[in-house]
């Protein structure tokens, strides 16, 4: 991966591949980004984590010069995404939320076309196309039109196309949403290899596991604001080192249980009849909670301790889960 001379110059003075300061964007009256700040170190992966409508795609679109911000600044290798859009475009590869391929061209033709539009020379285009087709297991399908491709194949080709010019920075907007488990693992593997090769990656996801597995740093956004950032472990610490989860036996007594159990970082889920709360892992707290439930005559079906998942982090930070955007679940007053 060889950035241009100019790009190298700016890298030597700044270790950040991407710097975002006070980014704002509204569509008519709807404020979608309300002052976003973050930076991505060169050669690392940053995951923008947030539910549907959080502003992830909007952020990516601004960074990839598809959309003008209303305020704030974004720099890619030191180049401004608004004023130096063309420089930025030669440094980035974009894989959007939906495959951006030409249906009537073959896989190979798609790669050739985009390679030439990146201004590569013909030899490199041919070599790189072969490499990528092999790498993404698309060799056999390379002479077929994309119309005939499966969902997983399209995603792979879409990513391959954005890698044709071997850009030092890649944007991936929900790269695994809607993929079957096997395709998802393949995608993760490819992303990890890209990082090993020195690429800087900004990805968005709604999936905690994905962020946990791939990202060096996670930025949690909700409603156009950053609500937390840090490594996966740092975020997990905010909800306690361990979580206690209790499943109530009968749905009818769940309401009562909500009243007698309290504690830090309490989450309630009436569908699965579970209560979960932050704990230091002591037996004392377990005993206390169980005896309170017992006194109230509430049967317990299951008790477990587990390391907090990013789902728990998200619930603690935003008050709603990723599956139920914007529905604030009841919070316990201590």
């Amino acid at each position: 991966m060889e950035p241009t001379l100019e790009a190298q110059k700016s890298i030597s003075t700044d270790n950040n591949a991407i710097v975002v300061k006070g980014l704002r964007k509204s569509f008519k009256k709807l404020t979608v980004l309300n002052g976003i700040d973050f930076s991505v170190k060169r050669g690392t992966v940053l995951a923008l984590l947030g539910p549907n409508g959080a502003g992830k795609t909007t952020t990516i679109r601004i960074l990839s010069t598809l959309l003008l911000p209303d305020g704030g600044q974004a720099l890619i290798h030191g180049f401004d995404v608004v004023r130096e859009a063309n420089k930025v475009r030669s440094l980035i590869g974009l894989t959007g939320q939906y495959a951006a391929l030409d249906e009537y061209l073959t896989g190979e033709e798609n790669l050739h076309m985009i390679g030439r539009l990146y201004r590569l020379n013909h030899q490199d285009i041919k070599r790189r196309t072969q490499e990528l087709l092999e790498l993404f297991d698309l060799m056999e399908a390379s002479a077929r039109t994309v119309k005939t491709y499966s969902g997983g194949m399209r995603r792979r080709l879409d990513l391959a196309v954005s890698l044709i010019a071997a850009p030092p920075i890649i944007f991936l907007d929900e790269p695994t949403t809607g993929l079957d488990p096997r395709s998802r693992l393949i995608m993760w593997d490819i992303i990890e290899q890209l990082v090993t090769a020195g690429t800087t990656i900004l990805l968005t996801t709604q999936d905690m596991d994905e962020a946990d597995r791939l990202a060096d740093k996670i930025v949690v956004i909700d409603g156009g604001r950053i609500i937390a950032e840090g490594t996966a472990d740092e975020l997990k610490q905010r909800v306690g080192s361990e979580r206690l989860e209790i499943t109530i036996a009968e749905a009818s007594s769940f309401e009562t249980a909500k009243r007698v159990v309290y504690g830090e970082g309490l989450h309630l889920d009436s569908k699965t009849r579970t209560l979960s709360l932050a704990t230091k892992g002591g037996v004392h707290q377990l005993k206390q909670v169980l005896s309170r439930l017992d006194e109230a005559g509430i049967g317990v079906e299951n008790v477990s301790f587990h390391r907090p998942t990013l789902d728990d982090v998200f619930l603690t930070l935003t008050g709603h889960t990723t599956e139920q955007p914007n529905i604030v679940i009841e919070k316990q007053e201590a």
Partner: peptide, 9 residues
């Protein structure tokens, strides 16, 4: 294959 260099014209 990921660590590769390409030339722009």
């Amino acid at each position: 294959s990921f660590i590769t260099s390409v030339q722009t014209e």
